[in-house]
Write a protein that binds this DNA or RNA. Structure first.
Lengths: 244, 244
DNA sequence: ACCTGAACACCGTTCAAGT
DNA sequence: ACCTGAACACCGTTCAAGT
């Protein structure tokens, strides 16, 4: 299964090359201006070959989504290694998510775009499968975090289950970052401190779950700074973007 | 100022007519398939006239965004009239937001799309002004709610300001609804009870702010049902959609 | 002043012909 | 088996000609 034919290896290498190129296009010109025409003319290949890799423009967008979620996953893996209590580890994951959304704002957008019907519908079955697989991996990271917190009694609240907590946590993070990156000029966003906006929102939520130590009992601002330090390698290493 | 010439009245009526048509198109075929070509051919007017109303395809999308936000505003105005304590009024607004996102899922999407750079950039100045104005109105509703709660001591937390609370509240609502509507097939979403998903998330957040009565001290599930009853007229009256 | 539709450039997708 | 690029339908945007 892991033994790939030479032809297949070449094919996969080319697909990576094309995705790299597509990433460059959306980073510089936005997700809306990705066209397979552009991708063709800027690559060394012909229209037919492009369509050999991507069954449609939307399938290409979904390939970018897979790339994005996969990167986010490696960010998360770095984050959980932060040395601290469980709630701090959770904060580290949020920080990693924010970091990704700021290093690759357009790829961050693409993740939502690809999941919307109309794009998903025009994505090849093989790719949809890949997206769902990656999404489940991300999900598992989040779930297992809350599982631990509940088991160890750090969250002590009969109304909080793994499923509800995990989703509320994701919704808050996603909502905050989506609004901060897409509606950055909005008064409601611009009047806030961009450095701690996510920390504040998440702290309110986790306090509401009763995840101890509560923010009144612990200096999470300091944690946030230490997390930033811990994840600095990701921030510097991945900044090979031309535009944003 | 409010005295419009006959020509201007006619122009505005036609614009409403075109926006109605565009709403119909995106409701049935998704925001991605709105084209000015389609809008032209399904309307009684020519390309030139369409471009007389919308400076670009993106400007047309932004017109839909204005329509959406304006409708959301009227939903909110119904919501604040719910007879209950302040936290229940806040819940009523969330309920109204959810109701809108379910009655007009594609218009709900369009609001985020229009605020993204690349769409906003291609929107006429006049329309951008209109969008910002409406957004501020929505903002004011949210802000004044938290202002009241803080003044009356129902939120008693030195770390919570109007600005931070208002944004956290918006982010949670938006994040929850965006994920629930765009990523409905995702495991993290589908495994939850769709009826109370938003109520649960918001309750956790408002508990975290210390907004009394806390969810442990009050039956907000019951409030949620009463709010649904209060807003029923909106649900039935506005369901004139063909597809979703 | 406003409306019309031809015109053109660009894009998505297919497929016959070539290797 | 895979690659190529011509071909065609569709779309965004402009603008000369018409009222």
């Amino acid at each position: 299964m892991s033994q790939l034919s030479k032809a297949e290896q070449k094919r996969q290498a080319r697909e990576e090359e094309l995705i790299d190129l597509a990433v460059e296009i959306i980073a510089n010109e936005g997700p809306g201006s990705l066209t397979l025409e552009k991708l063709t003319s800027r690559s060394a290949y012909s229209k037919g070959t492009i369509y050999n890799h991507f069954s449609s423009k939307e399938d290409c967008l979904s390939a970018l989504c897979c790339r994005a979620v996969s990167s986010i996953m490696t960010f998360f893996q770095q984050a959980v290694e932060f040395d601290g209590n469980l709630r701090e580890k959770a904060l580290a994951i949020h920080y990693a998510y924010q970091l990704y959304s700021r290093i690759h704002p357009t790829l961050f957008q693409v993740v939502l775009i690809s999941k919307s019907p109309g794009v998903r519908d025009k994505t090849s079955d093989k790719r949809v499968e890949c997206m769902d697989l990656l999404e489940n991996q991300i999900n598992d990271v989040s779930d297992s975090m809350f599982q631990h917190a509940l088991q160890q009694g750090e969250i002590n609240n009969p109304h909080v289950s793994v499923e509800t907590a995990s989703f509320a946590n994701w919704a808050m993070s996603f909502g905050t970052l989506a609004l901060a990156s897409s509606a950055a000029e909005a008064t409601a966003v611009s009047r806030l401190d961009q450095e701690t906006i996510l920390l504040n929102n998440v702290n309110l939520l986790l306090d509401g779950m009763g995840w101890s130590p509560l923010s009144s009992e612990w200096d999470y601002c300091d944690s946030w700074k230490r997390i930033a330090e811990h994840l600095k390698p990701l921030a510097t290493h991945h900044t090979n973007n031309t535009h944003d």
